[in-house]
Computed example of a mutant assay.
Amino acid sequence: MKKIRVGLIGYGAVNQNLLRILQDKQERLLAEYELQLQIVLVADSRGFAIDAQGFEPAALLRHKAAGGCTADLGARWSHRAPERLAEHCDLIFEASPVNLKTGEPGLSLVRAALADGVSVVLANKGPLVLAFHELHELAAASGAGLRYSATVCGGLPVLNIARRDMVLGRITRVRGVFNSTTNFILESMRDGKSFAAALDEAQRRGIAEADPSLDIGGWDTANKLLIILNSVTGERLQLKDIQVSGIADMTIQRVQAEQAAGRVIRLVAEASEGRYTVAPVALEATDFLAQCNGWEMALEYHSDIYGISYHKLWEREPAPTAASMLRDAVHILSGESLSHRSHTGWVGKRRPW
């Protein structure tokens, strides 16, 4: 049995769902993988609580449900992260709020953890968007594990499929619909609501954030496309390499005209022949991505020897994202490799496009 000291960075919905999964699956985790995850550190916006004896998942969930924070967990507590995370943790689950301007506070914590040899599982896209290659280099230098399948399409293992399973394959095209907020808005406009009314309804239901600019501007989708491309192609791409258009200028007239012609508008991410785009596209109703509705996200991989593979997920709650984090942790701790294709490039250094 491996007893693993775990830190939770972020005490929000994703890590709370992770706690529920750990509570429900701990016996199977031990029986099938010989792993016992002991939560010894919890961090939120107030600070860091540490207990070497470990926090029980059920107790942490009750504490959070009662409005608690790390400062009143009854453990060693500090405003700042420990200077050496490796003295306390073997692995951290990083699910702090996404910050795509500075990456903080997640980026500094991830850097410190990897440099100290602590493995990291990310649900937070920010550090990868801003410092993808730096973080992989830190992990390689220290021997720490770094996984982040939860950052793209939640519970759908799109990164694992390309990096592990498409052995010797050459991906020639990637297409996807990665943002359910835009699905909701476009479908509401199809039914006669104005863009403003559809956005207001999405915010009222909690589908869209108070600041929806990342979603409607196409940047959430672009961030996910960037992570996919840097992960599976060996390229060293940045957001500036992706041409991004959102849906803010979309009108009822255009949406309904396309519907009358048998087409569906979706915010589509695409990479093909060295061209990387995010834009609203009118798709034939029979197109796989046109059938990505509501809370669904979808992706296509086009490959030379594996044909075209289609992948879709319905995800309304963060449980599948949390499950992906646990999956990544098990792979790290079990020593499972992503085999033939790593962040350093494809076999033979061949450009995939």
Score class of each variant (00 low, 15 high):
Gly47Pro: 12
Gly206Ser: 06
Gly234Phe: 01
Ala248Glu: 13
Asp44Cys: 10
Gly145Met: 01
Ile9Glu: 10
Thr70Phe: 03
Tyr306Arg: 01
Phe184Thr: 11
Glu87Val: 15
Ile247Asp: 06
Gly192Pro: 10
Gly307Gln: 05
Arg341Leu: 03
Arg62Met: 07
Gly155Cys: 04
Gly192Gln: 10
Ala95Cys: 07
Ile227Val: 08
Asp241Thr: 06
Gly294Val: 10
Asn293Cys: 08
Tyr11Ser: 06
Val347Ala: 13
Ala144His: 00
Gly169Cys: 04
Arg170Asp: 06
Ala322Met: 06
Val244Ser: 03
Glu336Pro: 10
Leu109Asn: 10
Met297Asp: 03
Ile39Met: 05
Arg351Cys: 07
Leu225Asp: 00
Thr172Phe: 07
Val264Gly: 04
Gly307His: 04
Glu315Ser: 15
Thr321Pro: 05
Ala13Leu: 05
Trp353Tyr: 15
Phe55Asn: 15
Ser213Lys: 14
Leu35Tyr: 04
Ser142Asp: 03
Thr344Tyr: 07
Trp219Ser: 03
Arg204Ile: 02
Asp51Phe: 06
Arg20Tyr: 09
Ile9Cys: 15
Val330Ala: 09
Leu225Thr: 01
Trp346Phe: 10
Pro82Cys: 01
Glu137Ile: 05
Asp165His: 02
Ala144Gly: 06
Leu289Asn: 03
Gly234Ile: 08
Leu326Ile: 14
Leu283Asn: 09
Leu326Gly: 13
Ala95Leu: 03
Lys101Tyr: 00
Val152Tyr: 01
Ala49Pro: 10
Leu199Ser: 12
Lys193Thr: 04
Trp353Gln: 11
Leu114Lys: 13
Arg190Leu: 14
Glu94Pro: 09
Glu235Asp: 00
Ala285His: 13
Ala202Thr: 10
Arg46Gln: 15
Arg190Ala: 14
Ala290His: 10
Ile305Lys: 08
His311Tyr: 15
Cys89Ser: 03
Val347Trp: 09
Glu187Ile: 08
Val118Phe: 11
Arg170Asn: 06
Arg327Ala: 09
Arg80Pro: 07
Pro82Asp: 00
Thr321Met: 05
Ser78Glu: 07
Asp328Arg: 03
Gln16Cys: 14
Val347Tyr: 09
Leu214Ala: 12
Trp314Met: 14
Leu156Asn: 02
Ser231Tyr: 02
Leu61Thr: 07
Arg190Ile: 12
Cys292Thr: 13
Leu73Arg: 01
Arg163Thr: 01
Gly154Gln: 02
Ser303Pro: 04
Ser337Thr: 13
Asn160Ile: 01
Ser108Trp: 07
Phe132Asp: 04
Gln53His: 13
Thr221Phe: 01
Val330Gln: 06
Val40Cys: 12
Arg76Ala: 14
Ser339Lys: 09
Ser180Leu: 13
Arg275Gly: 05
Ala285Asp: 12
Leu333Ala: 05
Thr286Ile: 11
Ile305His: 06
Arg236Phe: 00
Leu138Gly: 11
Tyr33Ala: 04
Trp77Ile: 13
Arg204Thr: 06
Arg351His: 08
Ala66Leu: 09
Ala144Ser: 09
Ile9Met: 15
Glu34Met: 12
Leu130Val: 02
Ser324Arg: 10
Arg170Cys: 05
Met325Asp: 07
